[in-house]
Each structure stands twice: as C-alpha cells, then as structure tokens.
C-alpha cells in the first residue's frame, strides 16, 4: 500500500509534476471560487478551449518551447476572455449560446492548427503529459502561483464587492471593470500555466471542481477558499498516484479525483448537500 502511494514520487518527473500541481492547487481554486460566485463557470469553459489556438500558433512560430506556447496561450486566453466578457455584458449575462459558439470555434481552430503540425501531440496538449514537465514548466506553474496569491489578496475587497453587487460598485467607484480585468488575467495565467502537466482541457478542472465542491463545506467566502485549496491539493496528490499506477494522463487523473471529491461533497458535505436536504435536522 505504502509502495503504491510513494513509488510514483521516487521518480524525478513525478516529483516535478507534484510540485507544480501543488503550486497550482494553492493558486487556482480561490480564483475558481470567485468564478462560481460571479456565475462565470461557463467562462472557464470558454477559456480552456480558447487558449488552444494560441498555444498552437506559439508552437508553429517557435517550436516546442514552453515559453512560446505559454505566451501564445496567454494572449489567446485574454482575447477570448475580453470578447466573451463583452458578449456576456451586451446581453446582460443571460445569453450563453454565444459563449458556447465561441469555445466551439476556438476548439476547432486549435485542433485544426495542431493537426497541421506533425511535431505536436494533440493528446498531450489537451490532456497533459507529466513527462514533459521540465524546469521551465515547473517554474511557470510556481511563478504563476507566486504572482496570483498576493495579487488576489490585494484586489480581494473590491473583487468581493464587485462580485456581490456590480451595480453598487459601478455607482460608488466606477472602477469595477479594472478589478474584473486583473482577475481575468490571473485566471488566464493559471489556466495556461497548467497546460503542460494537465493539458488545456483539464487545467480548468483543478480550478473549478474544488471551488464547486467547497460550496458544500462552508458558507463563508474565506472558508470556501480554504476548503477549495485543500481539496485541490488532495486531488493533485491522488490524481498523480492514480495516473502513475493506472497509466492514464495526469490531467484526466487529477480531474477525475477532483470530480470524485466534488461528488462526495455534493452527496455528503455538511452544507446544502443531498444528505442535508434529505435529513435537514440530522
């Protein structure tokens, strides 16, 4: 048993992947909590598909460099986030079909671009490859986490107010858009930095699933953030062990673990769970 748990991490690349995923587990879920609160869960979908063409274009111009693909991904992610935000605002956030249209288009464009390049492995880009987590990718994940946490702490109060009541924020300070933009930059950075290890389609999972699950554990914002980080760390460790032993890509393995924890929270968590609703006074 102990062997099953520890053996994966005797290998250097697994330790690098673990370090990187734990860094992301600390930085990404708090952003996910805000995405959920701002009813922008679909935005994360749009982003995970939207970064793909950027990564492909980065790779076409500069080869398999993590930097080039990362920068391409960040630029494409920001562009998609801004356009999606504009579309959502134009329709008052009620119309999500345009967002769906956008991410389908982005995914198709990304897959087409990548398929045209024989040096790129689509499966690795979409679902991650822990073997490819080199020092650059690791520093990318750790660096993004290092930037994300202090910036999130700095913009915490206006972000809370803007998420709670954007109308009030607009009426009193009029700077809601600035905080929203900083927040989106952090989200894009986290999604892109995870793509080497987790894949573009899966790195959002580490951001969103723990955040959604956290709603069933705490009814304070700080509590939800703490729980989401804890769940994400558990998912990273558990997912990498699963990935190594069952031989599936790290991205789906980590997201499956996070998904399992979410289902567990949904069924048996202390707040607003199915168990609570069935037995309100238990």
């Amino acid at each position: 048993m102990l062997n099953f748990l520890l053996e994966p991490f005797t290998l250097g690349f697994m330790r690098r992947a673990l370090a990187g995923c734990l860094a992301l587990s600390i930085a990404a879920p708090p952003l996910g909590v805000f995405l959920v609160l701002r009813r922008m869960s679909l935005m994360s979908d749009v982003l995970q598909h939207g970064v793909l063409p950027g990564i492909a274009i980065g790779a076409i111009f500069a080869g398999l460099s993590v930097w080039a693909m990362g920068i391409g991904g960040v630029v494409a992610g920001l562009a998609v986030a801004v356009v999606a935000g504009w579309l959502a605002r134009r329709t008052g956030g009620r119309e999500d079909s345009q967002l769906a249209g956008m991410y389908l288009l982005a995914l198709a464009a990304g897959v087409a671009l990548i398929s045209s390049q024989h040096s790129l492995d689509l499966t690795h880009l979409l679902f991650g490859n822990v073997l490819a987590v080199d020092d650059t990718a690791l520093f990318g994940m750790a660096g993004v986490a290092t930037i994300t946490l202090p910036v999130l702490a700095l913009i915490w109060r206006p972000l809370v107010l803007e998420s709670l009541d954007p109308g009030f924020m607009a009426a009193t300070s009029g700077k809601g858009g600035l905080w929203h933009l900083i927040f989106l930059v952090l989200v894009v950075l986290c999604v892109v930095s995870g793509f080497v290890a987790l894949g573009t389609l899966m790195s959002v999972g580490l951001m969103m699933l723990p955040a959604i699950a956290a709603r069933h554990w705490s009814d304070s914002l700080a509590g939800q953030v703490r729980v989401s980080v804890l769940l994400a760390c558990l998912s990273s460790v558990g997912g990498l062990i699963l990935s190594y032993n069952v031989d599936i890509p790290a991205g789906p393995a980590i997201v499956l673990t996070a998904g399992g924890l979410w289902l567990l929270s949904l069924v048996a968590g202390p707040r607003a769970s199915l168990w609570r609703q069935a037995m309100p006074h238990a």
Binding site: L37, R39, V160, S163, L164, D165, G167, F168, A171, T172, G174, S218, D219, S220, L221, G223, Q224
Partner: peptide
C-alpha cells in the same frame, strides 16, 4: 458620486453570496 447613494432594487443582488 461619492455623495450619492443609490439603493437599487434588491432583487438584482446575489442573495446566495457567502458574506
């Protein structure tokens, strides 16, 4: 605008927000 307070209709505010 700092001297102006607008109390919009409360229904626009997300009541499930953990605060």
């Amino acid at each position: 605008s700092a001297d102006t307070a607008l109390l919009a209709q409360g229904s626009h505010l997300d009541r499930s927000f953990p605060i």
